[in-house]
Amino acid sequence: MPLQVNDQLSLLADILRSHQLDQCGSDSECQQLERLTNSLLQNPQTPIELRETLIAIQTYSQYSGQSPSLDQHIIQSNGDLNQWMNVIDNM
């Protein structure tokens, strides 16, 4: 059974929150972020207001795989992580 939009957004926010609080993460979490954003962007039930935020999260997750230090990438993205979680939490 596929996850509903709200479930996917909750999972997305949980991973982002974990990155922000722990200031570290794993490649598998970033891959999960990318899969979630892809799914949400393709789902017509996803609120259009989230599109820019989802694209930004998708870019963040894609760049994390190319970054020499994932933890440093997460630390440098702290402000963005906070902003994205606020947008998701307010949906």
Score class of each variant (00 low, 15 high):
Ser10Thr: 08
Leu41Tyr: 05
Glu52His: 04
Asp27Gly: 15
Ser67Lys: 13
Thr46Ala: 04
Arg35His: 11
Leu54Tyr: 14
Arg51Glu: 14
Leu50Asp: 07
Leu36Ala: 03
Asp22Gln: 11
Ala56His: 09
Glu34Cys: 08
Glu34Asp: 14
Tyr63Ile: 15
Asn6Arg: 06
Gln8Phe: 00
Asn6Cys: 01
Gln45Cys: 02
Arg35Ile: 12
Leu16Trp: 00
Ala13Gly: 07
Gln32Tyr: 04
Ser26Trp: 05
Cys24Tyr: 12
Ser10Phe: 06
Arg17His: 13
Thr53Pro: 03
Leu21Lys: 13
Ala13Tyr: 02
Gln62Ile: 10
Asp14His: 08
Leu41Met: 09
Ala13Arg: 09
Thr37Ile: 14
Glu52Asn: 11
Ser39Gln: 13
Leu41Pro: 01
Arg17Cys: 09
Tyr60Val: 06
Leu36Gln: 05
Arg17Phe: 10
Ser28His: 11
Ser64Thr: 11
Arg51Ser: 05
Gly65Tyr: 03
Asn38Trp: 05
Thr37Val: 13
Cys30Tyr: 14
Tyr60Glu: 11
Glu49Asn: 10
Leu33Phe: 01
Ile48Ala: 09
Asn38Ile: 04
Asn43Gly: 00
Pro44His: 08
Tyr63Met: 15
Asn6Glu: 04
Leu16Gln: 01
Ser61Lys: 13
Val5His: 02
Gly25Pro: 09
Asn38Ser: 08
Leu11Phe: 03
Leu33Glu: 04
Glu52Tyr: 04
Gln23Gly: 07
Ser64Arg: 06
Cys24Gly: 13
Asp14Ser: 14
Arg51His: 12
Leu50Ser: 07
Pro47Leu: 08
Leu21Ser: 04
Ser39Pro: 02
Ile15His: 03
Pro47Gln: 05
Ser26Lys: 07
Gly65Cys: 09
Gln4Ala: 06
Cys24Met: 14
Glu29Ile: 11
Glu34Leu: 15
Thr37Trp: 09
Gln42Thr: 10
Gln66Ala: 12
Asp7Ala: 00
Ile57Lys: 04
Gly25Thr: 12
Gln8Lys: 03
Leu9Phe: 02
Gln32Pro: 02
Glu29Val: 05
Leu21Glu: 08
Ile57Ser: 02
Cys24Thr: 15
Leu3His: 00
Gln45Asp: 07
Gln58Lys: 13
Gln58Leu: 07
Arg17Lys: 14
Arg35Lys: 15
Gln31Ser: 14
Thr53Ile: 08
Gln42Asp: 13
Leu16Ala: 00
Gln23Lys: 15
Ile48Gly: 05
Thr46Cys: 10
Ser39Thr: 15
Cys30Ala: 11
Gln45Leu: 09
Ser18Gly: 11
Cys24Phe: 12
Gln66Glu: 11
Leu16His: 01
Asp27Ser: 15
Asp7Pro: 00
Asp22Tyr: 10
Ser26Arg: 09
Asn43Asp: 11
Asn38Gly: 06
His19Asn: 12
Gln20Cys: 07
Gln31Phe: 12
Gln62Tyr: 10
Asn38Lys: 12
Pro47Val: 03
Gln4Val: 00
Leu50Gln: 10
Asp22Met: 07
Gln58Thr: 04
Val5Asp: 01
Asp14Phe: 05
Thr37Arg: 11
Gln20Arg: 15
Ser61Gly: 12
Gln45Tyr: 02
Asn43Leu: 00
Ser64Val: 12
Ser64Cys: 13
Thr59Met: 13
Asp14Leu: 09
Gln32Leu: 15
Asp7Glu: 03
Ala56Phe: 05
Ala56Met: 13
Asp27Met: 15
Leu50Glu: 07
Leu9Ile: 02
Gln20Gly: 09
Gly25Gln: 09
Gln31Ala: 13
